[in-house]
Design a protein around this nucleic acid. Structure first.
Lengths: 204, 204
DNA sequence: AATATAGTTGACTGGTCAGTCTACAGATGT
DNA sequence: ACATCTGTAGACTGACCAGTCAACTATATT
């Protein structure tokens, strides 16, 4: 069996990068190829369209992030602290990227999903699927917090969805206004949405 | 003075419509012209670029919506009820549009802002400006609610921004998942974010 | 009716786009 | 050494894109 290649990964990496920084619509296949060091032929050898590549890129990114998400949301961490750790992590990462590119990039899932949602069912379904999987981290943290009496959340799934949506709204606003502080402020908003009891207040 | 024309308005209407339904990137000047019943020359007589038209379209939409926003957020309405009325209004409008086009469209400000935010400063600045003006409705309602002892909000501006971001996150999620129910559920989330005291609970 | 001005027309340009196609390169198993 | 199959190369196509331009039309004022 002939040679192996890392081109597929180079292409998904390049695609996610460019689309995240700019947008799906303004990111051309040519630009993706150039960044990945690929020629057109290679691109269409691995993917049958730009749409399919985008879906693959999102899926690949998700797989890369899983280990880190698992660590942040480890059941060994007190449930409300998991959120703080996650929000801190995202804040720090976006702040770091801002230093490099000048912009707060927000969450690619929302940016891409919102852009192509009404037009590209393949990409939209992928966003949807990953979105739901990520919510599961929130959901089990909420369930644990509820079990420990830190919050009252009889419907952890709905609460998780609501908090996830609020968080992504904040990330989107941060992208639009290019202001990282909005993300920092979210930790307190999250406590409000979760309905954290005063007695459960954590140290900063 | 020669003839008058409603073409400028037809163009901004067509543009906002197409961009909202689809996206900025996939909406061509040709398509906007066709829908507006204009020729290329007319388009570039009124606007010097697609970007400038988009900014004008957002501004025009904002101006059209002001009277309604003023009514929904009238100081004569109890402050927390203003939010309910607003959320109901948006929900109903998006549900109606969904019947016509099959999709939950969310908020054009977020969709457009998130798409072009890192690339088109003119459009982005316009989104930013309108965003801030809309937040003022939230802010004064929050201030009134605080004054009436319905909520505790020592920083109404920050609270308004947070609630606005959460709401837009929910609208974005509704667009991505094409699910209007998420918007209906937001009324309760808003109460959590606002920190509505139990004694201030309203009838549905 | 003359004229100035606001608005309209549509062909045209040069560039970019996603996607195709045929030829080719190189590692591996035999 | 040779066959096989994975991957690479890059020219090419036809559609579409934003934006230009010079000629034209309709109206309001004088």
């Amino acid at each position: 069996m002939p040679r192996v290649s890392d081109m597929k990964e180079r292409l998904t990496d390049a695609a996610l990068d460019l689309i995240w920084h700019n947008s799906y619509g303004t990111t051309s296949v040519d630009a993706i190829c150039e960044r990945a060091g690929a020629k057109k032929g290679s691109f269409y050898y691995f993917f049958k369209s730009k749409s399919e590549l985008t879906a693959a890129a999102l899926e690949a990114e998700w797989n890369k992030s899983r280990a880190n998400m698992d660590a942040l949301f480890s059941p060994t961490v007190p449930p409300l602290e998991r959120f703080d750790r996650y929000f801190d992590y995202v804040h720090d990462r976006l702040a770091e990227l801002q230093k490099a590119c000048g912009s707060i990039l927000g969450c690619p899932l929302l940016t891409i999903g919102s852009e192509v949602g009404t037009q590209d069912q393949a990409v939209r379904a992928t966003v949807d699927r990953i979105w739901d999987r990520k919510i599961q981290y929130f959901e089990s943290a909420i369930r644990d917090a509820h079990a420990q009496g830190l919050i009252v959340a009889p419907d952890p799934e709905a609460k998780a969805r609501a908090l996830f949506a609020c968080y992504h709204g904040t990330l989107a606003q941060a992208r639009i206004q290019n202001d990282v502080e909005l993300i920092r402020d979210f930790k307190q908003v999250a406590r409000d949405v979760l309905g954290v009891k005063h007695s459960a207040a954590l140290s900063a």
